Amino acid sequence: MSQALTLARPYARAAFGIARDAGDYASWSNALAFAARVAADPQVVDLLGSPKLTHADAVSLLAIDGAGEQVRRFLALLADNRRLALLPEIAGLFEELRTEAERVVKARVTSATALGDADLAGIKAALKKRFGREVEIETAVDASLIGGAVIDAGDVVIDGSLKGKLGRLQSALAS
């Protein structure tokens, strides 16, 4: 995995540089995400490894409808260098670079029950104040938390769940 990330990093930086210069992060994100999903499909993995598949056919398969010429040339470069299998890593690294450049924090809020709009707005406002950046929230429900929520925002994890509190209490009592 770390070798794949090492190989993918220069390609992600190059794609990011092209997108930044064009001021077009969104279409590059969409194009790379689509190509990554296609390239990760088990049936496509075998096809991409086939010597019978031409680079032009690989680009046609992986390029999203309406992809610009630069995206197509980028995919052709990956095909020429036999790096199409790295597309999931490239797309992930591109998104990290994009969120950093756009000063956005992506947070995942996992709660015991579905949160209402008011609750999510409060969490978003608190995270925006804490990080000084815009916040994008993704939600999930995990009934095993019993109550409360766990917020995962990159390097910061805030565990306000009852399950977490009970675990900390148990550790404190066992000491």
Results as ranks from 00 to 15, higher is better:
residue 1 M to K: 05
residue 5 L to T: 02
residue 8 A to N: 04
residue 9 R to N: 05
residue 10 P to A: 10
residue 11 Y to Q: 08
residue 12 A to V: 02
residue 12 A to M: 04
residue 14 A to V: 14
residue 14 A to T: 15
residue 14 A to M: 14
residue 15 A to R: 01
residue 16 F to K: 00
residue 16 F to A: 09
residue 17 G to D: 14
residue 18 I to N: 01
residue 19 A to W: 05
residue 24 D to Y: 02
residue 26 A to H: 06
residue 28 W to E: 06
residue 30 N to Y: 05
residue 32 L to Q: 02
residue 33 A to E: 10
residue 34 F to E: 11
residue 35 A to Q: 07
residue 36 A to Y: 03
residue 36 A to R: 00
residue 38 V to G: 01
residue 39 A to F: 06
residue 40 A to C: 02
residue 45 V to R: 15
residue 48 L to F: 03
residue 50 S to M: 03
residue 50 S to F: 04
residue 52 K to I: 14
residue 53 L to V: 15
residue 54 T to Q: 10
residue 54 T to E: 11
residue 55 H to S: 11
residue 57 D to E: 09
residue 57 D to C: 01
residue 58 A to D: 07
residue 59 V to N: 03
residue 60 S to V: 05
residue 61 L to P: 00
residue 63 A to G: 02
residue 64 I to F: 09
residue 64 I to Q: 14
residue 65 D to G: 10
residue 71 V to R: 00
residue 75 L to F: 11
residue 75 L to W: 07
residue 76 A to Y: 12
residue 76 A to D: 14
residue 77 L to P: 00
residue 77 L to H: 01
residue 80 D to M: 05
residue 80 D to A: 08
residue 82 R to A: 11
residue 83 R to V: 09
residue 84 L to C: 06
residue 84 L to D: 04
residue 85 A to V: 13
residue 86 L to P: 00
residue 87 L to V: 11
residue 88 P to R: 05
residue 88 P to D: 10
residue 89 E to Q: 15
residue 89 E to T: 07
residue 89 E to H: 15
residue 89 E to Y: 15
residue 89 E to S: 15
residue 93 L to D: 04
residue 95 E to F: 07
residue 95 E to V: 12
residue 96 E to I: 12
residue 100 E to W: 05
residue 101 A to G: 02
residue 102 E to D: 08
residue 102 E to S: 08
residue 102 E to H: 04
residue 105 V to Q: 03
residue 105 V to D: 02
residue 107 A to N: 01
residue 108 R to I: 12
residue 110 T to M: 11
residue 110 T to D: 05
residue 110 T to I: 15
residue 112 A to F: 13
residue 114 A to V: 11
residue 114 A to P: 00
residue 116 G to M: 05
residue 118 A to L: 08
residue 120 L to G: 01
residue 120 L to I: 08
residue 120 L to T: 03
residue 122 G to V: 12
residue 124 K to A: 13
residue 127 L to I: 04
residue 128 K to T: 15
residue 129 K to E: 14
residue 129 K to Y: 01
residue 131 F to R: 01
residue 131 F to T: 02
residue 131 F to M: 08
residue 134 E to R: 11
residue 134 E to L: 09
residue 134 E to W: 09
residue 135 V to A: 06
residue 135 V to Y: 03
residue 136 E to L: 10
residue 137 I to G: 04
residue 137 I to E: 05
residue 137 I to T: 07
residue 139 T to C: 13
residue 143 A to K: 15
residue 144 S to K: 04
residue 144 S to F: 10
residue 146 I to M: 12
residue 146 I to C: 12
residue 148 G to L: 12
residue 149 A to H: 08
residue 150 V to R: 11
residue 151 I to T: 07
residue 151 I to S: 06
residue 151 I to G: 03
residue 152 D to G: 04
residue 154 G to K: 12
residue 155 D to E: 14
residue 155 D to S: 14
residue 158 I to E: 09
residue 158 I to Q: 07
residue 159 D to E: 13
residue 159 D to W: 12
residue 160 G to C: 12
residue 160 G to D: 14
residue 160 G to P: 00
residue 161 S to P: 00
residue 163 K to T: 13
residue 163 K to Y: 12
residue 166 L to N: 08
residue 166 L to H: 08
residue 168 R to K: 15
residue 170 Q to V: 02
residue 171 S to D: 13
residue 172 A to I: 09
residue 175 S to L: 10
